[in-house]
Simulated assay, not measured.
Amino acid sequence: MFKRILLTLTVVCCMVVAFTSPSEGHAAAYTYYKVQKGDTLYSIAKKHKTTVSNLKAMNHKRNDIIIVGEKLKVPQGRAATSAVKKSVTAEERKLMAQLVHAETGYSEPFAGKVEVALVILNRVKHPSFPKSIKGVIYQKTKSGYAFVPVRTGKLTKIQPTKQDYAAVDQAVALHSNDKRGSLYFYNPKITKNKWMLSRPVTIRIGNHVFAK
Rank of each mutant, 00 (worst) to 15 (best):
P22M: 06
R93I: 06
K134Q: 12
T161L: 10
F110K: 00
K94Q: 15
K140F: 08
V17N: 04
V209D: 07
V116K: 03
P130C: 10
M1N: 09
R151S: 07
R4N: 12
K134A: 12
L7D: 13
Q139F: 11
V84F: 02
K34T: 12
S182C: 02
I203M: 05
V74E: 02
S176R: 11
P22R: 07
L7W: 14
R204F: 00
V11T: 14
A83R: 03
T40A: 00
N177R: 12
V150E: 05
I137V: 11
I158W: 08
S43R: 07
C13N: 13
Q159F: 09
K140R: 15
T20C: 11
Q36C: 03
E91H: 11
A166W: 01
M196G: 00
P160L: 05
K189Y: 04
Y186I: 00
M1E: 10
Y138N: 11
C13Y: 15
A166E: 09
K154Q: 14
H60L: 11
R62T: 10
H101G: 06
E24F: 15
V136T: 06
S107D: 09
H101S: 09
S53T: 07
R180W: 02
K142A: 13
V148E: 15
K61H: 07
Y30D: 08
M1A: 12
G77L: 09
K162M: 03
E24M: 14
S132I: 14
L9V: 13
K73G: 04
P200D: 06
P160W: 03
K3C: 02
A90G: 00
K179T: 11
F185I: 07
V124D: 10
I5P: 04
G38V: 01
A171N: 09
V100L: 08
K46M: 01
V119F: 08
S182I: 03
M58L: 15
A111Q: 11
K86C: 09
G77N: 15
K113I: 07
N59K: 02
V74Y: 04
V35P: 05
N59H: 09
S143R: 14
V209H: 04
Q36N: 02
C14V: 14
T8E: 10
Y30S: 10
I65E: 06
L41F: 00
T10I: 08
H48D: 06
N193L: 01
E103G: 05
R204I: 00
Q159I: 15
K37M: 01
T89Y: 11
G112V: 08
H60R: 14
G25I: 09
S43F: 03
T20N: 13
R4M: 13
K113V: 06
Q163K: 10
K113M: 12
K192E: 09
K125A: 15
T51P: 03
F185Q: 04
E108N: 03
Y145K: 04
S182E: 11
I120Y: 09
K37D: 08
G181C: 07
H60M: 08
R180S: 05
T156P: 02
E92H: 13
A173F: 06
V52S: 04
S21H: 15
G105N: 06
Y33A: 00
V150P: 05
F147T: 00
V17W: 14
P188S: 08
L197Y: 01
P75N: 14
S128M: 14
I133G: 11
T202V: 11
K125P: 04
